[in-house]
Simulated assay, not measured.
Amino acid sequence: MNRQTLVSLASGTLFGAGLAISGMIDPARVRAFLDVGGAWDPTLAFVMGGAILPMIVAWAIVRRRARPIVATEFHLPATRPIDGRLIAGAALFGIGWGLAGLCPGPAIASLGVAPIPALIFCAGMVLGFALFRLVPAPSSTRKGTRDGLQAAR
């Protein structure tokens, strides 16, 4: 196993453990965060807020590097304009998140704790990925020319 695979595995394991420890793999907790008119639970806001500081530090370090530590080059997505396809995808994501109380990271982390509900969600997630690949992008969609790292510099 190469270094990049080991770092990816360690990072994913750390992320999944963080989700489990913070309670973010509990759909009821996530739905309680989204219930701003009822019994609102701010835990998710604190988890998100706690993720911002390390990310700010990580981006400050990455911007100064010519290449990643365990890869030959950065692979960041191109910046693309906000269009109907993005808005529709974000809306579907939000609806699914609100209904299921899970998004991709917590769903995968939940496979070890509550495998049946997590498998149902993951099957729907994979179906959504496949549908995205099958639905052609409009020909008028322009591809971005600058990646996130170049734009950040």
Rank of each mutant, 00 (worst) to 15 (best):
M55A: 10
I56F: 06
I56W: 04
V57A: 11
W59Q: 13
W59I: 13
R64C: 02
R64F: 01
R64M: 08
R64G: 13
R65N: 05
R67S: 11
P68I: 02
I69G: 01
T72E: 15
T72K: 14
E73F: 10
H75N: 10
P77F: 06
T79A: 15
R80S: 05
I82H: 15
D83H: 12
G84H: 11
R85L: 07
G94S: 12
I95C: 09
G96D: 09
G96Q: 07
G98S: 05
G101L: 01
L102D: 04
L102A: 00
P104T: 06
P104I: 09
G105W: 00
I108T: 03
L111K: 09
V113G: 00
P115L: 08
P115T: 00
I116Q: 03
I116Y: 11
I116N: 00
A118L: 05
L119E: 00
L119D: 01
L119W: 02
I120E: 06
C122S: 07
A123W: 06
A123E: 07
G124W: 02
G124N: 08
V126E: 08
G128Y: 10
L131Q: 11
F132A: 09
R133D: 14
L134D: 04
V135K: 04
P138F: 14
S140L: 09
S140W: 12
S140G: 08
S140F: 09
S140R: 14
R142V: 12
K143R: 12
T145I: 10
G148N: 13
Q150P: 02
